[in-house]
Structure formats: structure tokens, C-alpha cells
């Protein structure tokens, strides 16, 4: 079950840096592959050898638990040697520049580097300097491609399709890389995307991203198939962007009242980690229509698919 064996598989790329510009064919290829990985992950023996002998480095300049462990697990299940590098223990703390770090790592001859960085564009910069494949695991407020792919996979598995669905992405759009990647993927797959947030948490040209913008959540959720909540960081709720957690929850927290405006079978999603009682009511997070835990499961599957896809183009074959 190699990618080559799947005749319709199409992903002619060395890196996965952004979702902008990915074709529907490429995205569907990854999702088809991820579907199979998901099956493997539910078996007792989850180990495969597609990446045997390969080295995968998780280079995280920003703290992350779930994305990093998801990539680590994905790499290991495909047989790669996985090394986690955290900024707190690395030479960046000693003043090394991003490019020097990249060159140093490159000299260790890894095959794939997974990078998360707090600055938009940092991953792309790093990708230009190394010989191996690079996966963007989140760069600033720019993109988080594997999150959008796992969201699309979760939707596709639950609803049987993505095309034609109305998806409301709600919350801190301004600072969200998840939102940006999702807008690209969902639009490419034919969904209708809505953005719901107070104006202070919307980028100025939000309406130019191919999404409909709402500042009233009751209105924004009207008739939606998917309600995708975003995390609001604590330092942004104390008066700078929104007055308080109480007010934010009142007007933009997902509760039963607001959810009742979405379709009766609407799915509830959240990329995590959640602030219960801030952007989402605790009961809603645990709702029967919540697929938040499925998202985590699909995370590993999608990352396996991405690693597998990129492995096709690795050098030293």
C-alpha cells in the first residue's frame, strides 16, 4: 500500500508549507491516503516501514503538545527515527539565528523537518536553506496546513463530503493560522466558509479571503453544517481585543442558544486546546455532535499521510 500503488494519487511537492495553492486533487489524494492510515491506526499492529531508516526532526520554536506528539507518533508508526527539538533546550536560546539553526540541522542530514515557529514566513525561510523536506506545523498567524487537512478529513468522514457544506469558523480569526489554512482548504473543496468574530479579532481584509464575514454570531451560525471554534488566548481577552472573558462568552462563546441557530445536525469542532467557558460551553464541548476528539485521531492519520506523500520525493532513493 504505497502511494505509487494508488493510481489516482497526486502530490508532486517536496514541502508542505501552505494550503494556499493546493489543488482539490492534491488535497483529496492526501485525505484518501489519510483514510487508510486511520484504518491502520485502529489495528493492533500500527507499525509500518515506509520511512524506515529516515530521520524526522520535530523543530518546535513554540510550545506545543498535541501537534508535536501527533507528528512524533505519525513518524514512528511509519518507521522513522524521530527527534524532538524544543526551543527551550536548543541553541536558539543562546542567540543562534534561525538560519544558523537550519544549517546546523541540515548538516545532520535529516530527511524531513517539521517546524513550528512564532513568526509568519519563518518556516518557508528555513525551507529555502535545507536539503530535506519541510512541513509547516504552524508559522505565526499564517498557516497550519496539517490542521486544516485533519479538519477536512474529520468533516468528510462525518458528513461524507465537504463540497456544499457551510462552515462557520468562529473566534480569533485575526491571530489564527488554523483559520487561514482552513479557509483555503475548505474553499478549494467547495465548502462555503463564514468567519464569525468581533471586528477587533478580524483581519482588515477578512472579506477578501473568499469568506463571508459576520460580527453577530447568532446570524453567522444560521443554517451552518459545521461550527468550528477557535481558541482565544488568555492575554487577548483582558481588554485589548475583547473586554473580558465574560463578555466574550456572552456574545461569541458557543452555547446551546447560539448552536440552535445552526442546522440540527451541525458538527462542533475545535482545534484545541479549549478554554471551556470562554469560547465554548463545557457541555457543548462534550456534546454528542462534537467531533473534537475525532479531530485528534485524524491528526495522526493526516500527518502520516503527509509524511508518506513527501517521502516519495526524498533524495537518496
Amino acid at each position: 500500500m504505497t502511494p505509487a500503488a494508488t493510481s489516482s494519487f497526486y502530490f508532486p511537492r517536496r514541502h508542505l508549507l501552505t494550503c494556499e495553492g493546493l489543488s482539490a486533487k492534491e488535497i483529496n489524494s492526501l485525505l484518501d491516503l489519510a483514510d487508510k492510515s486511520a484504518e491502520v491506526n485502529r489495528q493492533i499492529n500500527k507499525k509500518r516501514d515506509i520511512l524506515r531508516g529516515r530521520t524526522l526532526i520535530n523543530l518546535f520554536f513554540e510550545v506545543s503538545t498535541r501537534t508535536q506528539s501527533s507528528f512524533e507518533l505519525a513518524g514512528k508508526r511509519l518507521g522513522a527515527d524521530v527527534m524532538n527539538m524544543n526551543v527551550s533546550t536548543s541553541s536558539v536560546q543562546k542567540g543562534e539565528t534561525l538560519i544558523d539553526t537550519a544549517m546546523t540541522l541540515n548538516a545532520m542530514r535529516p530527511d524531513i523537518i517539521v517546524v513550528r515557529h512564532h513568526a509568519a514566513g519563518a518556516v518557508e525561510l528555513l525551507a529555502q536553506k535545507v536539503d530535506c523536506s519541510v512541513i509547516n506545523a504552524g508559522d505565526g498567524a499564517h498557516e497550519h496546513p496539517t490542521q486544516a487537512l485533519l479538519d477536512a478529513l474529520t468533516i468528510r468522514r462525518a458528513k461524507g463530503r465537504v463540497a456544499g457544506l457551510t462552515v462557520a469558523i468562529c473566534g480569533d480569526i485575526l491571530h489564527s493560522r488554523v483559520a487561514r489554512s482552513n479557509i483555503h482548504v475548505l474553499n478549494t473543496l467547495g465548502a462555503r466558509v463564514r468567519l464569525v468574530a468581533p471586528s477587533t479579532l478580524l483581519p482588515p481584509a477578512a472579506d477578501r479571503l473568499g469568506a463571508e464575514v459576520f460580527t453577530d454570531m447568532w446570524e453567522g451560525l444560521q443554517g451552518c453544517d459545521i461550527v468550528m471554534m477557535l481558541r482565544l488566548q488568555r492575554e487577548r481577552m483582558q481588554g485589548a481585543y475583547v473586554p473580558s472573558t465574560r463578555e466574550y462568552y456572552h456574545f461569541f462563546g458557543l452555547d446551546h442558544d447560539k448552536l440552535s441557530h445552526a442546522k440540527p445536525d451541525a458538527l462542533i469542532m475545535h482545534p484545541g486546546p479549549m478554554n471551556r467557558g470562554v469560547e465554548i460551553a463545557s457541555a457543548i464541548a462534550d456534546h454528542s455532535r462534537s467531533v473534537i476528539r475525532d479531530q485528534v485521531e485524524m491528526g495522526v492519520a493526516v500527518r502520516m499521510a503527509v509524511l508518506e506523500a513527501l517521502a516519495r520525493h526524498l533524495p537518496n532513493q
Binding site: 481588554g239 473586554p243 473580558s244 465574560r246
Partner: peptide
């Protein structure tokens, strides 16, 4: 418009 009229943090305008 701001908490304590200090001009630093927004007050709960909606509520």
C-alpha cells in the same frame, strides 16, 4: 469605554 476610565482596557461595551 475603558475600565476605570484609564484608557487601557476596553470596558464590557456589549454587556
Amino acid at each position: 469605554a475603558t475600565r476605570g476610565l484609564k484608557g487601557e482596557e476596553m470596558a464590557e461595551i456589549g454587556l
